[in-house]
Design a protein around this nucleic acid. Structure first.
Lengths: 364, 364
DNA sequence: GATTAGCACTCAAAGCAAATGAGTGCTAAA
DNA sequence: TTTAGCACTCATTTGCTTTGAGTGCTAATC
């Protein structure tokens, strides 16, 4: 991901930075004259042209066509993001916004992430993404049953990630309050700590045998649990502020936009990308650096949210490749800090575990 | 919504229908000659022109500009949908698809709705919408608590609509297993059947007094319950297949598209529209018939899903005004039938109440 | 009175050519 | 190494013409 690009002279760096900045702001190719005017450089446009030609040769710039200005290449952006970017300081106003909106939403992790990605989208004017990554293996820490009617009870499961899931169960055979209570105990004894792929036939049979409850009921419940676990593994992703994309001319090409929306809908690709990421730092994925198709003139910036050493979610920003990285990075950094505070819980009535409970609504 | 439009001659109806059909298929204005060719009418193009002129005068047709063909007006579409539309029979293939995909998803209502709107989007090639409408007043039927650690327990609530919601609670004061159990009993005694606006200060105080649990803990829990209830009232909406919109030329105007995506994001308008609808039939909202802005050249077709006399959700299709209503209506009809079957539960292990449990992720 | 053929008219859309101008590369001088 | 100068390139804009689908109207016909 990093090339040996230290070999750039100060002037080259300054020119490259100027071009990227200008391109981020304006969107179009940047010419030598423009740089001369908006930059204090003690040289002429011809010199700048020479430098630009060299930068192009080195792969940092591209020329859409012979008589156009230069546009940063993917490599150019990468260098910019890694080395040239200027720290953007959030305004107190923005910080206040984050605090207010996030504190108000302080409920389950789901909602915090959603609110945060929303906020990120608002603050940066790009598209926000809230992600709950796939996890290798969730297990269930605690079972509980709620008896409602003779043929109807609810199974509640608390997962190892702190999420609470539930399922209504309508049995064919009437069950009693007592049976249902016994069921919970039995499940707690035998099935806690197992992930979906650990629930094998032997275990099921052993459980059935030792439970002293009719096999039908047990079978039904185990099936439900299995489904629950599979669902928990799946990961989820929510997008907010798609409409913002449209204001950038790079997306006025309908076919391009269509493909991008397609990948956003499918969710698969982005979910994979984020789930597979190992670092907890902010990630900047520019264009074809990722295996995600169609991101060619787009970039995705995302920041994992970590709780107890585990990645429990991520918030991200999707926008044109020429996005205002300084601002985006600062925003995500700020938000993730606040989220960390929230989920490490210093608030009165809620704030401990991530994931108060509900994370259905997967990607269908 | 209905004008006295019975005064149309058979031939006028035929011509109007032909124009609408042609426009749905092609998208452009329809001329007299085209109709003559694709329709068996024993008259000439001049006669058709005359009829068209009259239809325009009556408000059923519009002319984009003087030398263009005719385009159906909103009124024209309304008449078409109400009177002229031909029943579309779903293919066995499509029916099979519905059955398979829906049966596979048979879990909570949330997921069924989502899967259904997704499927609707696939089958019709327009954008699908899954809606859980606002409800006036949900109450909680049953409380349960799950003890985890000395300062940490989970509150589980079963609502009157059958949804199960939960919240982690981290108390400032240690609680015991026994306290937590007692808490559940007390809540079940005092707070079941109340909606958010019925939880008033007197009731809270009375509950606190009779509970015999420290006021802090009770106060915290009641606050959580209140928030839970408010959240349940809120309604939710999910969109799938936005990218499909782009294939219709009416949305290649970026600014239009942007506004439409905006309303889809806000959700407010559509949620209101659906929540306020009283009939359980399929609704067709064409363009500016609704108060929803920006739907000018779009139409929304939706079908409420009813369970025990209550509207528990809706699935809908959003597309260009010139959408294939016959197909859309048939699809929604078919899907809603299947959903009704599912939630009235004739399946072995699950199927009774709607809403197994999880419907967080509201509109932030 | 309804229908039709015929014709003049309209107007968006497509095609074409010239003008514009931002920006470059190269060369030769400083 | 830098720079001024100049010829060259090429996307974009502009104005113009052509095309053709489609209409409205009128006068003849059924």
């Amino acid at each position: 991901m990093n090339t040996e690009n230290r070999g750039l002279s100060e002037r080259k760096k300054q020119i490259l930075k100027a071009i990227v900045d200008a391109h981020i702001e304006g969107g179009g190719p940047v010419g030598s004259k423009y740089i001369l005017q908006n930059q204090q450089l003690s040289c002429s446009s011809a010199t700048i042209r020479n430098e630009m030609a060299e930068l192009e040769e080195m792969g940092y710039l591209e020329q859409p066509h012979a008589s156009a200005g230069r546009v940063p290449s993917e490599l150019g952006y990468r260098f910019y993001v890694d080395s040239l970017i200027e720290r953007y300081a959030m305004t107190t106003n923005e910080i206040a916004q984050i605090n207010n909106l996030l504190k108000a939403k302080m409920g389950e992790l789901d909602q915090i992430l959603l609110a945060a990605s929303n906020l990120a989208s608002n603050l940066t004017n790009y598209t926000g993404i809230a992600i709950k990554p796939r996890v290798q293996s969730v297990s269930i820490t605690k079972f509980e049953t709620i008896y409602l009617e003779p043929d109807h009870y609810i199974l509640v499961a608390v997962t190892s990630t702190g999420a609470v899931k539930s399922r209504h169960i309508h049995g064919d055979y009437p069950v009693t309050q007592a049976t249902v209570t016994r069921l919970a105990t039995a499940l707690n004894d035998h099935l806690t700590g197992l992930s979906a792929d650990q629930i094998t036939l032997p275990i099921i049979m052993k459980t059935e045998a030792q439970m002293g409850i009719d096999a039908q009921t047990v079978g039904t419940v185990i099936k439900v649990i299995y489904e629950l676990l599979s669902e928990l593994d799946a990961g989820e992703m929510r997008v907010s502020g798609i409409d913002r994309l449209l204001q950038y001319p790079e997306y006025s090409d309908v076919s391009q936009l269509q493909e991008l929306l397609g990948t956003l809908e499918k969710k698969e690709d982005i979910l994979n990308l984020v789930s597979r990421t190992e670092t907890n730092d902010i990630n900047v994925v520019i264009g074809s650096e990722s295996e995600v198709k169609v991101m060619n003139n787009s970039a995705l910036v995302f920041k994992p949210i970590v709780k107890d050493g585990k990645t429990v979610g991520a918030i991200g920003i999707l926008g044109p490749r020429r996005m205002d990285y300084a601002k985006v990075l600062a925003t995500l950094e700020g938000l993730s800090g606040n989220i960390a505070d929230l989920i490490h819980g210093n608030n009165q009535w809620n704030g401990g575990l991530p994931d108060g409970g509900n994370q259905s609504n997967g990607n269908a």
